[in-house]
Design a binder for these strands. Sequence first.
DNA 1: CAGAATCCTATGCGATACTG
DNA 2: CAGTATCGCATAGGATTCTG
Lengths: 159, 159
Amino acid sequence: MVRRTRFDDSDCPVARSVDAIGDWWSLLIVRDAFDGSRRFGEFQRGLGVAKNILAARLRVLVDGGVLDVVPASDGSSYHEYVLTPKGRDLFPVIVALRQWGEGHFFEPGEPHSEMVDRQGGRPLRALEVRSADGRRLDPDDTAVVKVDQLGTPAGAVPE
Amino acid sequence: MVRRTRFDDSDCPVARSVDAIGDWWSLLIVRDAFDGSRRFGEFQRGLGVAKNILAARLRVLVDGGVLDVVPASDGSSYHEYVLTPKGRDLFPVIVALRQWGEGHFFEPGEPHSEMVDRQGGRPLRALEVRSADGRRLDPDDTAVVKVDQLGTPAGAVPE
DNA sequence: CAGAATCCTATGCGATACTG
DNA sequence: CAGTATCGCATAGGATTCTG
């Protein structure tokens, strides 16, 4: 796929995000990073991915500014991979995917990993899309517009 | 990749979501569906993807319960692809990816498509991850636990 | 226009072996 | 343990053609 079709010049932020993440492995690496994984071996065990693939993905994520390489915290000569602020900004993406999966791909009672609030251990509230003034928005309440210049929508999508 | 490594039996909802979506094309199809695309040709023009690929992806999305096929609303003999409730539940995922992209892949003032509130046309509020009782949560405020049985966390991740 | 059917190639990725 | 190097195959997906 010639490195797949590139989306990095699209004017759609979704496409650029998708392009920047690269592939699903990368996203699962990020997931594990949020879960606390920092070492090469941790990621490899958590993912069951071939080491060459993992190494390549880690490099892409580091180059893309999602992960940072830091000296190992335990004093060993290796290093660790930690999320950058940019990588941490993927938090809602991971949470959104997690909640979608929880809601649609598990039988009631089926064991699964779950993200909880550390204080009290309760599951998170479902993500809510809101307007600038705080109203809850459904998909139909939104439109995608093309912003031509500095922040001024050029026109609402007709519909 | 023998249809890539399967994640559909993972106990992680993120992995199952990723597996169900299939690939980036599918996600961009969903994005366009949220933007109002319904017809084969609309998706194709919006994505610039080969028709066979598009057809295959649409089938996967329909089979997966993300899209539904309905008779064309304009009376033509073709049909249209509309989001199912399950598909509409991907809304936060798309919004999250969009916001990440907006925040990290565009220069200030660089033209891009933007999702706005239909009422007033203002951009959306940034997604916020919240606890069950409404506190804002950062990644560090959360943990991923393994739920063994009916809703009772088996133990917090040590860290 | 909406697809299905072919053909073809680049490459993602899995497996394995090797290094420090 | 943390990677790099090499090999090989399946296949995603691009291009094109054909049909109703």
